[in-house]
Amino acid sequence: MTPPRIAIIDYGRGNLRSVQKGFGKVGYEARVTRDPDVIADATHVVLPGVGAFADCMANLEDFGLIGPIHSTVESGKPFLGICVGMQLLFTEGEEFGTHKGLDILPGRVVAFPQGMTVGEGEHVERLKVPHMGWNRLHVTRQSPLFRDIHEGEWCYFVHSYHAVPEDLSVVAATSQYGVLFTASVWNDNVVATQFHPEKSDKAGLSMLKAFAEWQC
């Protein structure tokens, strides 16, 4: 088997090196790039992201990456969105006003509700936002990413907004934080995670490995 050519899209946002080092750890070289030719030539493409939705979209536009992303998705090669990179796949996001996303998956990206609590009486606990730390996945579909993942796996999240897909059949995993939210999606050649696989220890690394070995 020829090794995959993995491209990590660099649009000036996020800790791209840790995604690259994650692939390195499981034996796959990945290139950090904003060159449309390198992206077109890749067999696997990753869209990472941290920061605000609108900023990320603006950067993608400034670097001329929106076209290459759409072509990648249409070409049918494996595509992975991480954190804001998952949120950007949807129609629109409502962080600091409503902003258009890539509209690859129909749906919206919304804030966690204010003033969420858990427990009762004396044990009532206020839930803070961002949702930051380790939470469990409830796997609803065996996405290619979850090849070696079992139900209830812990993953590392940092976010204040979450995606609400119009078509719930794309949901691959959910997680619970005051509300039940979409932790991962899978539609044809597109997979995405709200959590950071590159920061989710062995479970996360196994997802990067499964992605690198996915042929669709």
Binding site: R17, S18, K21, G22, K25, Y156, E198, S200, D201, L205
Partner: peptide, 8 residues
Amino acid sequence: TAEQVFIP
């Protein structure tokens, strides 16, 4: 460290 540690 970042080459070996995959937690924050």
